[in-house]
Amino acid sequence: MTVGVALNAADAPNQVDATVRLAQEAAAAGLRSAWFGQTFGADSPQLAAIVGREVPGLQVGTSAIPVFGRHPLLVAGQALTAQAATHGRYHLGLALGTKLLTETGFGLPFARPIARLREFLTALRQLTQTGTADFHGELLTATTPVPARVPGADDGVPILVAAMGPQALRVSGELADGILPYLAGPRALADHIVPALTAAAEAADRPAPRVVALVPGVVTDDVDTVRQKATEYLAFYEQIPSYARVLELSNARRASDVAVIGDEKTVAAEVRRYRDAGATEVVFSGTEIAGDENRRRTWALLGELAS
């Protein structure tokens, strides 16, 4: 099983330089992948491309670009460029996004998100695989009067979706290479998410999808203090319906209840629980909330688990 980390250096004097340094440290610890979030700040495909060039051998990915406010032609160009820059080590993550950020940030109605995801994936798959598209949907049009291919990215780009609800899982199983669930505990994965995803892929005669579980977690001896920080750090997600639902399915009251916090033995056991629940890859996030010492301790353990 691949083990990776989500890197967040948004508070550094120079986010790009700091992210490269973190990625080098992660790779030295034995971690296999580094993932980058996407909000309204740094462009995550560019960040992934830079890190992938600077840290050879490390898989890099975006987790995840919302489909609202973007177009498949533009996202395909970003993803293919990152794939060429990293010589095949880039993984593109997409997300529905949220009503709050979509309508407040872009001034767009958060309407028919599943239909938009389906059309976005259909057009994007054509573009990343062939460099051409002739797609005319209800919500999106994507055609290529001139080729959209990027030499050096001829094998395409793995596409994953931050899907956790039944409809998004069905679309992802049919059209994507896997999913990027966040705040979904082992119970939600094993009982709800993985079975629905697998069934959709099988019905579409597609290979078994990847399940890249993003897990907030830290190795520490000061469990109570770090969990309190995690409660504050993760509280934002509790107001978003998709996360509230998956937390309930995980038998969690607060988002921090699914955070993996404890000593090495405790955290290793929880990583194994995610594997047993169907995760093909585990990516730890939020390690920065507990300070550099605990972050390095966390990465050292994850590197051992990755080997």
Rank of each mutant, 00 (worst) to 15 (best):
A6T: 09
A6E: 08
A6R: 15
A9K: 13
A10P: 06
D11Q: 14
V16C: 08
D17C: 07
T19Q: 13
E25N: 13
A26Q: 01
A28N: 11
A29C: 15
R32C: 04
S33G: 12
F36N: 11
T39A: 15
D43A: 09
D43E: 13
D43Y: 03
L47E: 07
L47I: 14
A49M: 07
G52N: 08
R53G: 14
R53T: 15
R53N: 10
V60H: 05
S63R: 04
A64Y: 04
I65W: 05
I65R: 03
V67N: 04
G69D: 01
P72C: 03
P72Q: 08
L73W: 00
V75G: 10
V75C: 10
A76C: 14
G77F: 05
Q78W: 08
A79R: 06
L80H: 11
A84K: 10
R89P: 04
H91Q: 04
G93E: 00
L94D: 01
L94R: 01
A95K: 03
T98H: 14
K99S: 12
L100Q: 15
T102P: 09
E103A: 09
T104A: 11
G107H: 11
P109H: 10
F110L: 08
I114G: 02
L117Q: 09
E119S: 03
A123P: 12
L127Y: 03
T128A: 01
Q129C: 02
T130L: 00
A133T: 07
D134T: 14
D134F: 11
D134W: 07
E138T: 15
E138V: 11
A142E: 04
A142P: 00
T144Q: 04
P145K: 09
V146P: 01
R149W: 14
R149S: 11
P151L: 06
P151W: 06
P151N: 02
G152I: 12
D155A: 12
D155M: 04
G156R: 02
L160W: 09
A163V: 02
A168N: 03
A168D: 03
R170K: 13
R170F: 00
R170Q: 12
V171Y: 00
G178W: 03
I179M: 02
I179V: 15
Y182E: 02
A184P: 05
G185R: 00
A188G: 12
H192N: 04
H192A: 08
I193K: 04
P195E: 05
L197A: 00
T198P: 01
A200V: 02
A200Y: 01
A201F: 06
E202V: 02
A203K: 13
R206F: 01
A208I: 01
P209K: 01
P209W: 07
P209Y: 03
V211R: 05
V211Y: 02
V212N: 02
A213C: 04
L214N: 10
V215T: 14
P216E: 07
V218I: 15
T220V: 12
V223I: 15
T225G: 15
V226Y: 09
Q228A: 15
A230D: 09
T231I: 02
I240D: 09
Y243P: 03
V246H: 10
S250Y: 08
S256L: 05
S256R: 01
V258F: 06
E264C: 11
K265A: 15
T266M: 11
A268W: 09
A269T: 10
A269W: 03
A269G: 13
R273P: 01
Y274K: 05
Y274G: 05
A279Y: 08
V283Y: 08
G286W: 02
E288C: 01
I289W: 05
I289P: 13
N294R: 14
L301I: 09
L302Y: 11
